[in-house]
Amino acid sequence: MFVLKKENPEDWWEVEALFDLCFAPGRTALSSYRLRDDVPPVAALGRIARDEMGMLGGAIRYWPVRIGDAEVLLLGPVAVHPTAQGEGLAAAMIRDSLAQAAESWNRVLLVGDLPYYQRFGFHRLSGIEMPPPTNQDRILGLELTPDAWNGICGPVIRAA
């Protein structure tokens, strides 16, 4: 049994260790990390999942980015400890955090697998340019308000 909680500052290094375990320490070389450099995550949306013993089973973070003048929420990373995979933790964290995000954001962006993320409402985006090298077929978006992606195109840049 896992309980979802807001990520707190004291969880930071444990969450980082989980991300390293799930994605390898070289994860920070990915192009999406250039959008996160020196930009704090959206603290209100970070979630962790702990079991009854207090062990960290999963974590999700979001980051602010921009496309032109549009504010965009970048989902990721999301990770589940190998011993807890297949229990629906990632889906629970995604659903919970997206519901929270809908209160103050219009759109969400991620780089991921459409077959997995389409169940949350994500679809392929065209005209959005992630830093290279990014497979354009993996650029996905979700509208939290109607027509939020209409007219949005161009390069994704770091939030100021």
Rank of each mutant, 00 (worst) to 15 (best):
M1A: 08
F2R: 03
K6P: 02
P9Q: 06
P9V: 10
E10T: 11
E10V: 06
D11A: 07
W12H: 14
W13Y: 11
E16F: 03
E16S: 05
A17T: 12
C22S: 11
A24L: 13
G26I: 05
R27P: 11
T28P: 00
T28L: 04
S31D: 10
R34C: 02
L35Q: 12
L35W: 12
D37R: 13
D37Y: 10
D38V: 05
V39Y: 01
V39K: 02
P41I: 02
P41W: 09
V42N: 08
A44E: 13
L45S: 05
G46H: 09
G46N: 03
R47L: 10
I48L: 00
A49I: 02
D51R: 03
G54Y: 08
M55H: 15
M55W: 12
L56N: 09
A59V: 04
A59K: 01
R61W: 05
R61G: 08
R61N: 07
P64I: 08
R66K: 08
A70Q: 15
L73S: 12
L74H: 07
G76P: 12
G76D: 14
G76R: 10
V78R: 04
A79H: 15
V80L: 04
P82L: 11
A84Y: 13
A84T: 01
A84H: 13
Q85A: 02
G86F: 05
E87Y: 12
L89K: 01
A91F: 03
R95Q: 09
R95I: 00
L98S: 06
L98V: 15
A99V: 09
Q100C: 10
A101L: 06
A102V: 05
A102I: 07
W105A: 01
N106M: 02
R107N: 04
R107I: 01
V108D: 00
V108R: 00
L109V: 02
L114N: 10
P115W: 13
P115M: 12
Y116V: 05
Y117F: 09
Y117I: 03
Y117D: 00
L125N: 03
S126T: 13
I128Q: 01
I128M: 01
I128H: 01
M130Y: 11
M130A: 07
P131H: 10
P131M: 11
P133A: 12
N135W: 12
N135P: 11
Q136E: 15
D137L: 13
R138C: 14
G141L: 08
E143K: 04
E143C: 06
L144W: 07
T145I: 15
T145E: 14
D147R: 12
A148R: 06
A148F: 07
W149H: 09
N150S: 15
N150T: 15
N150L: 14
G151D: 10
C153R: 04
V156S: 00
R158V: 06
R158M: 08
A159H: 15
